[in-house]
Computed example of a mutant assay.
Amino acid sequence: MFRNESAAPRPQLVNWDVAASTAASLTPAGPTMKPAEIARAVQNMRELADVSVGHVHSISRLDAARDLRDSELLIVDRASWAKANSQSFRTLMEPALDQLATTRPEVLKSASLTLGGNLTGAQLGAILAFLSSKVLGQYDPFVPSRNGQGGRLMLVAPNIISVERELNVDPSDFRLWVCLHEQTHRVQFAAAPWLKDHMTGHIGELTSGLMDKADSLSERLGTAVKNITTARSRALRDSPAADGVPAQDIGVLSILQDPDDKARLSHLTAVMSLLEGHANVVMDGVDGSIVPSVKTIRRRFNARGKSRGPLEKVIRQLMGLDAKMRQYSDGAKFVRRVVSQTGMDGFNAVWQSAEHLPTEREIHAADEWIDRMSLRRHG
Rank of each mutant, 00 (worst) to 15 (best):
P35T: 06
P35N: 07
P35A: 11
P35D: 08
E37C: 08
E37V: 08
A39S: 15
R40W: 14
R40F: 14
V42W: 09
Q43H: 13
L48I: 01
A49S: 05
V53D: 00
G54F: 02
H55L: 02
V56R: 02
S58C: 08
I59L: 06
I59C: 00
S60R: 03
R61W: 05
R61T: 05
R61L: 09
A64D: 03
A64Y: 00
R66C: 06
D67V: 09
S71E: 11
S71W: 08
E72Q: 15
I75M: 12
D77K: 11
D77S: 09
R78V: 00
A82G: 00
K83S: 14
K83G: 08
A84S: 13
S86T: 15
Q87Y: 10
F89K: 11
R90G: 10
T91G: 09
A96I: 03
Q99N: 06
L100Y: 04
L100P: 00
T103Q: 14
K109P: 04
L113N: 09
G116E: 02
N118Y: 13
A122Y: 09
A122W: 06
L124I: 07
L124Y: 02
A126T: 04
A126W: 09
F130P: 06
S132G: 14
V135W: 12
Q138V: 10
Q149Y: 05
Q149F: 02
G150Y: 01
G151N: 01
L153I: 08
L153W: 00
L153F: 04
L155R: 06
A157M: 15
